[in-house]
Simulated scan of single mutants.
Amino acid sequence: MKKTFFIFFLLSGLLFQAQSQRFTYEYKYRIDSTAKDKTETELMILDMTPKGSKFYSKDYFESDSLMTAAIQKQAKSGNTDFNFSGFKFRGKVRYSVEKAYPAYSVNFFTTLGSDEYLVQDGRTQNWKILPEKEKVENFITQKATCIFAGRKWTAWFTTDLPIQDGPYKFHGLPGLIVKIEDENLTHTFELKGIKKLPDTYDWKSKKDKERYNPLITLNETKYKKAFNDFRADPMKSERQMMAQGVIIEERDDSGKLVDPEKSRREQEKKMKDRIKKENNPIELDLLK
């Protein structure tokens, strides 16, 4: 009986992975651990294809696509003085995560200032599967726990969706992760929607995206150093660009040129003030 169930689970899992599916998660998180009454909410997308998955912010992805289209349109017209006045990015979650099947190797894409990083993360989650079950979004789910990136996590997975994936970098359970939260309830992902993607859908890796500056590839250990270096000096890359002769022009609402040095000082102060409040990253061990 057990062997028959295993074969059924394997075959149904292969069938499920052969389809391209989109899972929408609601992500609730607290940026500042001291501001207990302020919780951010963002819709996140987990796209699964036979070759892998991609996890990203719905709003930020749409804004980035609009920005890319605007750049291409202005470039085709011969305009090199790009004008983005009035354009505002939506979405506060700027990272994305890609997992390649069947190994579930993880690539994490993020930015620090003007630098864009690809972080090759070789860590895995050592799950402890528990007997407790709970109904989450019409699914009968089972409980599992792990310690990952400085936090203790509780996940609820369902074998009704037999694929070993989930939001963010989480994977490795015998079914889709429907809900996962840290023990302090400051980071929570919960499944809210599922739809089948067209057979022609085939997402491209973010590493193949056209970009002006080279993508910096690191492992998670070296990224931790870059992360803390940025927190200590968030304007370093901008100063290096200016030292190389790159001219960054800014204009106020009236169209008047803004003094670059004054603007840099004001921006640096704003960034340092913001960084102080960003004391509760999803990977808490980045700060240790």
Rank of each mutant, 00 (worst) to 15 (best):
K262R: 12
K76Y: 12
I194W: 02
G245E: 06
A18Y: 09
A103Q: 12
V106C: 04
F189Q: 01
V246S: 11
T159D: 15
L218C: 06
P50T: 04
Q72W: 11
M44N: 00
A243I: 08
D182Y: 01
G78F: 15
E210P: 09
K272C: 02
D253N: 09
F8A: 11
F189W: 04
E116G: 12
D165I: 00
R251C: 03
Q72A: 10
K192V: 07
E181Y: 07
K2V: 11
L14Q: 11
E250K: 12
M241H: 06
I163N: 04
S53A: 06
L173V: 02
M242A: 13
L197A: 06
A75L: 11
M48T: 08
G193Y: 04
V258G: 09
Y27H: 03
K73S: 14
L15M: 11
L173G: 00
D253L: 10
E250H: 14
Q244M: 13
I216W: 05
M271Q: 09
F55C: 03
L286Y: 11
T141M: 05
K128A: 15
L66W: 08
R231I: 06
Y56M: 04
A155G: 05
W156T: 02
V119H: 03
I71A: 08
G13V: 05
N219M: 05
A144H: 03
G193E: 05
S33F: 10
D59Q: 15
Y25M: 02
V106Q: 00
K272G: 02
S85Y: 10
D202S: 12
Q19T: 13
E137M: 09
P174A: 01
L286R: 08
E183M: 04
K133C: 11
D160F: 01
V246I: 15
S63V: 08
F170V: 04
V246E: 14
D285L: 05
K128V: 15
Y104N: 11
A155V: 03
T200I: 08
E137D: 11
S65Q: 07
T188K: 06
N126T: 15
S65P: 04
D259A: 09
K222G: 13
Q240F: 10
E42N: 06
